[in-house]
Structures are given as structure tokens and as C-alpha cells.
């Protein structure tokens, strides 16, 4: 009885799918799809000219627009503002001068 009910249910399902023009799933994947599902109608692909937006493109070798540089704390070292001041204090303390050279600025985000 159970077997009869199960086969009746499967038959009904197949019949319902066939009526919608679809093939049943095979191995968990749809065997085929209708063309209209894959392809979009041409009228939705073509944008009327009045709706096209174009923006002027400018290419400049020397772009002068610069974003403001973000300042950061230059580590936990207590720096003198100039090497001259560090040298002056070195004479008094007897400690050597440490001069750190870099490209960019130590208190900039990118240095």
C-alpha cells in the first residue's frame, strides 16, 4: 500500500513539472533550462541613449589634488625638534646624538 502511494506521489510530481515545460532534476542538478530563464529580454539590455550618463575623464601627469596627510605620534621616543638642539644637549649630558633620517615625515601616516 505504501509503495503504491509513493509511486503515485512521484508520478503526480513529474506530471506537474512537465505541465510547466520543465524537465525534472537529475542527480541534484537541473538538466536544462528554458532559454528565457538564461537570456534577459533584449529591451532590458539596451539602455535608451537619454539614460546614458557619461563623465568627463581627465588625465593629468601632475595631479595637484592632494589629500591632507594624517598625523600620527612618532613613537614613544622624546625627540628634539632639531638636530642642533640635540647636539647642544649632548654637550651638556655627554650622551651621543642619535639622528634618524627618513623619507617622508615621522609624524605622517605614510613615511
Amino acid at each position: 500500500m505504501k509503495r503504491f502511494l509513493l509511486s503515485a506521489l512521484i508520478t503526480t510530481l513529474f506530471a506537474a513539472q512537465a505541465s510547466h515545460g520543465q524537465e525534472p532534476f537529475k542527480g541534484g542538478m537541473r538538466a536544462d533550462m528554458r532559454k528565457s530563464i538564461i537570456e534577459m529580454p533584449i529591451k532590458t539590455l539596451l539602455v535608451p541613449p537619454k539614460e546614458l550618463k557619461s563623465e568627463p575623464v581627465s588625465i593629468s601627469k601632475n595631479d595637484t589634488k592632494k589629500e591632507p596627510k594624517k598625523k600620527v605620534r612618532p613613537g614613544a621616543v622624546i625627540w628634539y625638534p632639531t638636530t642642533a638642539e640635540a647636539k647642544k644637549n649632548s654637550l651638556l649630558s655627554g650622551k651621543p646624538v642619535l639622528v634618524f633620517h627618513l623619507m617622508g615625515f615621522l609624524d605622517d601616516r605614510f613615511c
Binding site: G75, A76, V77, Y80, P81, P96, L98, M103, L106
Partner: peptide
């Protein structure tokens, strides 16, 4: 590097430090 506590403490105690941009 200068955020490293050991390095920064050593520099502060033993040098007169200044930085310059080249």
C-alpha cells in the same frame, strides 16, 4: 620601531635624539 617600549626607553635614556626628513 620607535613604538617598541624597550627601544624607545633605551633611546630616551642613552641618546639625544632628533629626526629629519631627507
Amino acid at each position: 620601531m620607535f613604538s617598541n617600549p624597550e627601544i624607545s626607553a633605551y633611546i630616551n635614556q642613552n641618546f639625544e635624539p632628533a629626526w629629519e626628513s631627507v
